[in-house]
């Protein structure tokens, strides 16, 4: 639906303006927030606070509708389990965030600056994403194995694991 894509263009535009107004396109400010044990810049608390509270209120209003304005249905993640990829991925992401001071949004929004570090970061981030997609089957096999042993299980009744499948995937991932 090409014509409806115009509206996601508007959302991306406003998103980028918000990032630059909030100071999140300055990697030094992000590292200043993460530098909590020394000299701390609390800006990001206000950025996240403002964004989360706004989204919380608007999401409740939007979700009263049965469908979005220009799509057939809402696509909202329904998973509730805390699994190893979630935790491990977040740890890796945090290390990269702390090293570079960029997360994906500000990196993409900064591309037009043409700065070598921004382009290098964006390029290697895309490479990392492509590698992660190649690793996915392997990782999910490993997690199923762990889940089957009872680790990380916080209750996800929708996904009952077949013992045979779990054994099969675990042997692949080892």
């Amino acid at each position: 639906m090409i014509r409806y894509s115009f509206f996601s263009f508007l959302s991306g535009l406003l998103f980028a303006l918000g990032l630059s107004v909030s100071g999140m396109t300055e990697p030094g400010k992000v590292i200043g927030f993460l530098n909590i044990t020394r000299s701390w810049d609390p800006s990001l608390v206000f950025v996240m606070g403002g964004a989360v509270i706004t989204y919380f209120i608007l999401f409740r209003l939007i979700h009263k509708r049965s469908a979005p304005l220009f799509a057939l249905q809402f696509s909202i993640p329904e998973r509730k389990d805390i699994d190893l990829p979630l935790l491990g991925g977040a740890v890796l992401f945090g290390i990269g965030w702390g090293l570079g001071g960029f997360c994906p949004g500000p990196a993409v929004a900064s591309i037009f600056t043409g700065k070598p570090n921004v382009l290098l970061f964006a390029g290697s981030m895309i490479l990392g994403m492509v590698i992660a997609d190649q690793l996915r089957p392997l990782l999910s096999g490993k997690t199923k194995h762990l889940l089957n042993q009872g680790f990380w299980k916080t209750g996800n009744p929708d996904k009952k694991l077949e013992p045979a499948t779990a054994t099969g995937t675990s042997s692949n991932s080892n």
């Binding site: 990829p85 491990g88 991925g89 977040a90 740890v91 890796l92 992401f93 945090g94 290390i95 990269g96 965030w97 090293l99 570079g100 001071g101 960029f102 997360c103 994906p104 990196a107 290098l120 970061f121 964006a122 390029g123 290697s124 981030m125 895309i126 490479l127 990392g128 994403m129 492509v130 590698i131 992660a132 997609d133 690793l135 996915r136 990782l139």
Partner: peptide, 11 residues
């Protein structure tokens, strides 16, 4: 940093 952010956010 870029590699880790790409890998970590997708995983």
């Amino acid at each position: 940093a870029g590699l880790l952010v790409g890998l970590g956010t997708r995983i």
